[in-house]
Simulated scan of single mutants.
Amino acid sequence: MAISPTISRRNAPLSGWRILVIEDEYFLADDISRALRSAGAEIAGPVGEVDEALPILNSGGVLDGAILDVNLRNEMVFPVAQELRARQVPFVFTTGYDKVSIAPQFRDVMLWEKPIDIAAMVRGLTQLIADRPA
C-alpha cells in the first residue's frame, strides 16, 4: 500500500531536506539534530565554530535550511549567515543574548531565544523552507 505524499510530508515535514546545524552547546546541538531527524531531515553538522561551518557551505552539497547559534565561543556567526543569504538558503538564529546582538542586516531573520522551544523552531524553519521561491 502506497503512503500518500501528504501524509508523509505531515509526519516527516523535512523529509529529503538537508539542514545545517551550527550550535556550540553540545547537548542543545544534539537535541536540535534529533528533532530535525525525527522530522525527516538529513543533518549537516552539527558544528560549533564558524571555521567548521564554512567548509560545509563550500563543499558543493545542497543545503535546504540552517539553524545558527548567533554567538559561537565569542565569535559571531554572521559570516555564515551572509553566505546562506547569498545562496538563498533559509535559516533561523538561536541565541542566549538580546535581540540587539543581531547585526542590523539580519534583524528580519526569525530568532529563537534560549531556552529554545525546539519543536516550535523546527516548525518555523519548516515553514521558511516550504515558502521559499522555487
Rank of each mutant, 00 (worst) to 15 (best):
G96E: 04
V92A: 12
R107W: 00
P46V: 07
V47A: 10
L72K: 07
L57T: 07
V109M: 04
G65L: 07
V47P: 06
T94M: 14
A29V: 08
D30C: 01
I116G: 01
I56S: 07
I32T: 02
L57P: 02
Q88F: 02
I102D: 04
G60M: 06
Q82N: 09
L68K: 11
E52I: 00
M76R: 07
F93A: 11
I32Y: 02
A35T: 07
M76Q: 08
L54T: 08
F93W: 04
G61Q: 15
L111T: 15
P46Y: 02
D69E: 14
P104W: 00
G60N: 04
A41Q: 09
V109A: 05
P90L: 12
E49F: 11
M110V: 12
D64R: 01
F93E: 13
D51C: 03
V47T: 02
A39Y: 06
A53I: 06
P79M: 05
M76Y: 10
Q105P: 13
P115R: 05
L54N: 01
M76P: 00
V50R: 01
D30Q: 09
Q105E: 15
W112D: 09
A29K: 03
I67P: 10
Y26L: 13
L36S: 03
I116T: 06
R37F: 02
F93C: 13
F78A: 08
V47N: 10
